[in-house]
Design a protein around this nucleic acid. Structure first.
Lengths: 244, 244
DNA sequence: AACATCATACTTGTCGACTAGTCAACAAGA
DNA sequence: TCTTGTTGACTAGTCGACAAGTATGATGTT
């Protein structure tokens, strides 16, 4: 890990790293730029504390500074970057208090979602999708990044099944805060089988129309997913927001 | 030519309405512009569907279009305006599905907040503040706008007391969706005494360290606060988003 | 050597002009 | 009368240049 960290030296890494990646060739609008940068930040390709020059980004995306600025403004709202006027824009360091807020919000909303799903039931398509995703999770137990993707889709399926797809958008915004930590902890994550078993328990409770059981299952799942984060964060002090 | 301008019935209304209002004289940055517009939209001084020309706004605020655009982008994220490229920016109509999402999110988060407050207790300052706000609410029972303000501060007090002030920021963003309806319904709102009694019940449950009671009290309070909205919205079809 | 000062090269913030796209009024033709 | 094409005004989106502020490093002085 230390070698990898060393590779991410500050200077012209952003351009180098993107050299091989596929970036849409055509003109990029602020939405596309926002999405690309968001992904780069969450996946730690842009490291916490790293400087983001509007000029450099404009050159990288082949536009002027205006679309870049507008994308950065959205990233500010996402809590992913900080702008110090006349000084520079920087990838936000991982803030423990932000993570705690994200954790709280996600737990509250996901519990409310599965409760409603259990109370009102979900359409058959949702059940089929959830079961398919469970199988896929078992398949890709050795590909943490793919598993993470399936994990997200599984959770989102309940929101959509309960008619609360738009609530998932809020969770997704908050989730970015500790997704960065998740990328740090992919090797040391909780055993996949445990997570799949928890997923199965959530699905069973929802299908059994048992809100209390669904809440309990989701609550313990959240505790499992999130507990890794805090001590892992402490092992990477350079990425953590200094105490205020 | 003059006729064309005259047909833009809304073109001068915004300026007219603001004629008497106090607007900071100095140069406004994107944050100030965003806040002013946000308040205008929530208070229905800018009506749903009304056109917002970047040029007009720039003239109104005495800046160029750049800060205005950046403020509008934040308002897009707040779900308060819609931008149709090359056509115009418009104050978003009140969307029933957005209101439902906001209702769901607020309920889930506020319940989680008071549960935690009841579980872990709140500092004495919070208790004093909440009690003071209860008295103030009783005082200004005849001033709906002031009461609304006290109402918000009462709810926020619990979030801050539970160490979750940042969660309140999320609630506040969502709240904007049905705050506009609240401005419509101020005359026909729920009797103030009922609301104050519910507030008192919430505070009592929290102070008694009874999470279940706190949740129940908050849940019924939310139901009360939010039930007016939907039928009231139907009485103002011009302000409502047409069904998709 | 240590300190103050200044020049320079950055940064974000702002501005006015330009582009491409949309819409409505209007005119020509069937 | 209806359709079609044109024109002109208006829109958001984009761009390059400049303003205002900051950090850095060289320079001159003590």
């Amino acid at each position: 890990m230390g070698q990898i960290l060393a590779m991410y030296a500050y200077s012209r890494t952003a351009a180098d790293r993107d050299a091989g990646r596929d970036e849409p060739a055509g003109p990029l609008d602020r939405r596309a730029i926002h999405e690309i940068l968001r992904r780069d930040i969450v996946a730690l390709r842009l490291r916490p504390g790293e400087k983001l020059s509007e000029n450099e980004l404009a050159a990288r995306f082949g536009t002027s500074r205006a679309p870049v600025r507008e994308a950065l403004i959205r990233l500010i709202e996402d809590g992913l970057i900080e702008v110090l006027p006349q000084r520079g824009s920087f990838v936000g360091r991982i803030s423990l208090s932000d993570m705690e807020r994200a954790r709280f919000v996600r737990e509250a909303l996901e519990i409310a979602i599965v409760r409603r799903a259990a109370e009102r039931g979900v359409p058959p398509g949702t059940q089929a999708l959830a079961e398919a995703l469970l199988l896929e999770q078992a398949e890709c137990r050795d590909d943490p990044e793919r598993f993470t993707l399936c994990d997200d889709r599984f959770h989102r399926a309940f929101a959509e099944g309960a008619g609360l797809a738009s609530v998932w958008a809020i969770i997704e915004r908050e989730k970015a805060q500790f997704d960065r930590v998740r990328y740090l902890s992919l090797p040391a994550a909780t055993p996949v089988d445990v997570l799949i078993a928890q997923h199965r328990a959530i699905l069973s409770a929802v299908l059994a129309r048992d809100p209390a059981a669904a809440e309990a299952a989701m609550r313990s799942h959240m505790a499992e997913v999130l507990k890794v984060a805090s001590d892992l964060a402490l092992r990477h002090p350079d990425l953590i927001q200094a105490d205020l």
